Simulated scan of single mutants.
Amino acid sequence: MEMIMVYTTFPDWDTAKEITRKLLEMKLIVCANLREHEAMYWWEGKIEESKEVGAIYKTEVSKWKELRDTLKELHPYEVPLIARIDLDKLNREYSEWMGRVLFG
């Protein structure tokens, strides 16, 4: 099994938790880590500052396209970041657990 992590951000806790729960229910992800942080970025010609909730999703590479497309559909941002991070090393026990969760 080839594990990947997917990183995205949300505007608030409620949105992050609602979308994350849907992804878990759809078995597109096996686990998520959510953390609030300060964000600074360019938007429409000026520097903005806000709080965001960052999400790291753990899943298997075969779920990538459906996860990406589902995030694009559900995401409230006009231009969301949806970044795939390929992992080349993963402990066997975690990999086996992921397989049981995602593929039954």
Score class of each variant (00 low, 15 high):
residue 35 R to I: 15
residue 81 L to I: 14
residue 27 K to V: 00
residue 40 M to W: 06
residue 87 L to G: 03
residue 1 M to L: 08
residue 29 I to D: 02
residue 29 I to W: 02
residue 24 L to R: 06
residue 53 V to A: 09
residue 25 E to F: 01
residue 24 L to P: 08
residue 2 E to M: 07
residue 53 V to E: 05
residue 56 I to D: 05
residue 60 E to W: 08
residue 47 I to C: 08
residue 9 T to Y: 03
residue 74 L to S: 09
residue 51 K to E: 14
residue 16 A to G: 05
residue 87 L to E: 07
residue 24 L to W: 09
residue 57 Y to M: 02
residue 82 I to T: 04
residue 37 H to N: 12
residue 96 E to L: 02
residue 9 T to G: 06
residue 73 E to H: 07
residue 50 S to K: 11
residue 89 K to S: 12
residue 96 E to Y: 07
residue 90 L to N: 04
residue 30 V to I: 10
residue 40 M to Y: 05
residue 32 A to S: 13
residue 52 E to P: 02
residue 63 K to H: 14
residue 86 D to F: 11
residue 59 T to N: 09
residue 2 E to Q: 15
residue 15 T to V: 03
residue 54 G to M: 05
residue 18 E to L: 12
residue 27 K to S: 01
residue 28 L to I: 01
residue 64 W to G: 08
residue 28 L to K: 01
residue 41 Y to A: 04
residue 76 P to G: 07
residue 6 V to F: 04
residue 79 V to A: 13
residue 18 E to C: 09
residue 103 F to V: 02
residue 47 I to K: 06
residue 35 R to V: 15
residue 49 E to G: 11
residue 84 R to F: 09
residue 72 K to N: 14
residue 54 G to N: 09
residue 8 T to G: 05
residue 41 Y to N: 04
residue 93 E to I: 10
residue 41 Y to W: 05
residue 42 W to D: 03
residue 98 M to D: 02
residue 79 V to F: 13
residue 38 E to S: 15
residue 13 W to V: 06
residue 64 W to Y: 15
residue 31 C to I: 03
residue 30 V to F: 10
residue 60 E to D: 15
residue 83 A to V: 15
residue 34 L to P: 01
residue 57 Y to V: 04
residue 96 E to M: 04
residue 39 A to Q: 09
residue 1 M to E: 04
residue 45 G to K: 03
residue 37 H to F: 15
residue 26 M to D: 05
residue 39 A to I: 03
residue 39 A to S: 11
residue 1 M to G: 08
residue 19 I to C: 13
residue 42 W to R: 09
residue 77 Y to S: 03
residue 78 E to I: 01
residue 37 H to P: 05
residue 95 S to K: 08
residue 41 Y to D: 00
residue 40 M to C: 12
residue 53 V to N: 06
residue 4 I to D: 06
residue 83 A to F: 12
residue 91 N to D: 11
residue 19 I to D: 12
residue 47 I to W: 08
residue 70 T to I: 04
residue 84 R to K: 15
residue 13 W to D: 11
residue 82 I to H: 06
residue 101 V to E: 12
residue 12 D to T: 04
residue 39 A to H: 02
residue 72 K to A: 11
residue 30 V to H: 10
residue 51 K to T: 14
residue 30 V to G: 13
residue 61 V to F: 07
residue 96 E to A: 08
residue 65 K to Q: 13
residue 87 L to R: 04
residue 24 L to M: 10
residue 101 V to S: 02
residue 46 K to S: 13
residue 89 K to H: 11
residue 33 N to D: 01
residue 71 L to M: 10
residue 27 K to C: 05
residue 90 L to A: 12
